[in-house]
Each structure stands twice: as structure tokens, then as C-alpha cells.
Amino acid sequence: MENRKGSVMGTIRWLSYDIAGAFLYAAGVHCFTSAHHIAPGGVTGISIIINYLTGIPIGILVLLINIPLLLIGLKFLGRRFTVRTLISVAILTFFLDYVVVKLPVYTGNTLLASLFGGVVMGAGLAIVFMGGSTTGGTDIVTKLLLQKHPYLQMGRIIFIIDLIIISASTIVYKSIDSALYAIIAMFTTARVIDALLYGLDIGKLVLVISEKSDEISQRIIHDLDRGVTLLKAAGGYSGKQQNVVMCAVRNSEYVKLKQLAHSIDPKSFVIVTSTSEVRGEGFKPIKEDN
């Protein structure tokens, strides 16, 4: 009984995410991008271009393009993925053709349209992804290609596909500006998705190599209120044993840590790398994302 209840609640949850995300994504397409001849890659970009040439509703085109892709992918991607994706695409089609068409269209500056379109579309896609669904399209093509050629890089595949679509939009709209605005919209969408999915708790992972590692670690703990891990290490040339200080901090705290290390040991060696997500005490809580 509890398992069935949990299954029902899970279904309601991902449907809720799908509905909310599809509405936002459709609003971004209708209110901002399609009205300004911006085709920001993917199946939606193809649909916007075909809609401009034929007048066929964008939502129907999204559905018609996705169905053969889903049928091809059914064997390789599994029944559950295919069914959920089809439902997500159907919801998106409904919003594109029957709901958001009643919303006002922004007719102002095209740059603002590409930026705000990217923000709204990115927010919509992020919500869909949070619910464990996908809007299909290039995701399916990418997964199928990776099944056959696992050595390929996913980001590169998506980039090439989107580049072809954006190039086509340049020819159809007879404007290089359309392609440039599409790139802006794509970039904005990607950034918003990353921010919502991985949070704004991005930061720096800092490694400090110093003979005064113990003193530096204590100062970090007391002055910055950050946890520290001491890694056992040995110099490759000297063979000398010493500790390496490892610490995760927010971007705003990195400068303080660097100054602190330098003030204690001007000869300290600091290595820093950006992190897309930090979880644990002082950052986002560690929990399983469903």
C-alpha cells in the first residue's frame, strides 16, 4: 500500500514539474524567441523555422519531430524513458499551441528578447529536468549517437546539431543577426539551467602547499569558519613530507583565503579550481535529489 502511494505521489510530482516547466518554456518561445525570428537550436529551433516557412503551429511540429525520434529510441533508451518523454512533449505541445498563444508577445528590442527568452526557457527546462523528465529532441539524438559511438563528447554533439540549426535559420531568415541572437539565447538558457539545477553555491576548491600548513589550516578554521582537510604529500624533487591544505570556499571568500595564506607564508603555493557545486556543512545540505 505504501509503495503504491509513493508511486502515485511520485507521478503527481513529476507531472507537476512537467506542467510548470512546459508552461514557462512555451511562454519563452512564444513571447520572446519565435516572434523575433530567433531559433535557439534543438527541435524547438527547427519547429520555429518550419513554422515561419509553412505556418504550421510550433507545438504540433515539436510533437511530429519527436515521435519518430522516440520510436527509434524506444529499443535503445527503454520504455519508461520513452513514455515519460512523450508525455512531456505532449504537455509542451498543448501549452505551445493552446495556452501561451493567449499571452502578449514582446515586440521590443531583439537583444532583450533573446536574453529574457533564454532566461524563461532555461527556467522551464530546469524545472522539467528537476522532475526527472526531458523534452526529447536533441537529447534523444545525442543518447542514440552515444550508444553507437560512446567515445564522442555529449557537449560537442549538441553543439554541432545546434550549430547546423542556427546556420539554417540564418539562411531562412536571411539575417546573420538571427543566428547571433540565437547564440545569446542558447547561452543564457544553459546558464539558467546550471544555476537552477546545481544551485548558486558554486565556489572554489583551494589547495595550499606550504611548510606552515598547520598554522594556515588553523587560521582558515578560525578566521573564515571553514573546514579544512590536510592531505599527506611528498615533494617530487626533494622527497620532503608535508601536509597540503585543502579547503572549499565561496567565491567571495577565496581572496581572503589567498591573502591569509600569503601573510603566513609568502612562499606558499596556492592552487585554485572552480567548482560547479559544493554540498555539506556551510553550503547546500547533502541530500538525494529525486
Rank of each mutant, 00 (worst) to 15 (best):
I12C: 10
F23P: 01
V29N: 05
D18E: 10
L15D: 05
C31P: 07
Y17R: 01
T11L: 12
Y25G: 03
S7I: 12
K5R: 12
Y17W: 08
L24H: 02
I12L: 15
H30P: 04
F23W: 02
K5S: 11
A22M: 05
S7P: 04
N3D: 12
A26M: 00
G10W: 07
R4D: 13
D18C: 15
G6S: 15
A26S: 09
H30I: 07
H30A: 08
S7A: 15
E2K: 15
A27R: 01
A26C: 04
G21A: 03
H30M: 05
A20M: 09
H30D: 03
S16C: 07
G28M: 03
A27G: 05
S7H: 13
S7M: 14
S7Q: 14
A26Q: 02
G21S: 03
S7W: 14
R4H: 12
S16T: 13
S16E: 02
N3A: 12
R4F: 15
C31N: 11
V8L: 14
G6W: 11
H30Q: 11
L24T: 00
A26I: 03
I19K: 04
A27M: 07
Y25K: 07
E2T: 14
I19E: 03
C31I: 12
V8E: 06
R4S: 14
I19D: 06
Y25I: 02
A27Y: 06
S16D: 03
Y17C: 10
M9P: 01
R13S: 13
G28Y: 10
Y17N: 06
G10L: 01
L24P: 00
K5F: 11
T11Y: 12
R13C: 05
A20I: 11
N3Y: 11
W14M: 10
W14S: 10
H30G: 04
G28W: 06
G10D: 11
I19C: 06
H30K: 10
S16N: 07
T11K: 10
R4W: 13
E2C: 04
I12Y: 09
Y25A: 09
R4L: 15
F23T: 00
N3F: 10
A27K: 00
Y17M: 07
K5C: 06
Y25S: 09
A22S: 15
N3G: 10
Y17S: 08
A26P: 01
G21N: 02
D18V: 13
K5E: 10
A20C: 09
A20Q: 05
A27T: 05
A20W: 03
C31Q: 11
L24D: 00
G28I: 02
A22Q: 00
C31G: 12
H30Y: 14
